[in-house]
Amino acid sequence: MAIETKRVLFSIEASLAQILAYMLANPNPDKPSYGMIATGGSFIFVKLVKGESPRYSTSDLFGISNPTNNLHDVLRILKGLSQIAASN
């Protein structure tokens, strides 16, 4: 798992290329790579599958200032990722 953090002034999109570069360096190309970009107030998760032609997808944007309190979703995703890491 790769984590990219930026200051609040940076956009999530500005960090996407950098985290994908980290994720492409995964020494286990047969397994998906997971990443998270955090700006202090926003979080987004990234999944990369290498294969013949690398493909990635991103989650919804989670924000701490969202009135529905997305932090519960962020913690649920982090817990799931930790279980994946523990099984490998």
Rank of each mutant, 00 (worst) to 15 (best):
I12H: 01
S57A: 08
I77H: 01
D30A: 14
R7A: 08
S65A: 13
L81S: 01
P32V: 04
I19W: 02
P67S: 09
P29I: 06
T5M: 12
P67N: 09
E4C: 03
G63L: 07
A25K: 12
I19E: 02
S33I: 06
S42C: 09
S87V: 02
P54S: 03
S53D: 15
L48M: 12
M36F: 01
V46E: 04
S65M: 13
K31F: 14
A21Y: 14
S33M: 05
N69R: 09
F62C: 03
A21D: 08
L75D: 03
P27S: 09
A17N: 13
N26R: 07
S53L: 10
M23D: 05
S42M: 10
N69K: 09
K6G: 07
L9Y: 15
I19Y: 02
P54T: 04
N26F: 05
T58I: 07
I64V: 13
N69F: 07
Q18F: 10
M23P: 10
G63D: 12
Q83I: 01
V49I: 02
F45P: 00
R76W: 09
T68D: 12
N69D: 13
F10K: 11
S11N: 10
Q18L: 10
T68H: 09
L75Y: 04
D60N: 13
P54D: 01
P29Q: 05
V49S: 11
S87K: 13
L78W: 12
I37E: 07
S15H: 00
A14R: 13
M36S: 04
S42P: 00
A17T: 14
L48C: 11
G35F: 08
K6E: 05
R76L: 10
A17I: 09
E52T: 12
V74C: 02
F10R: 11
G51M: 06
F10M: 10
L78I: 15
V49E: 14
S82K: 15
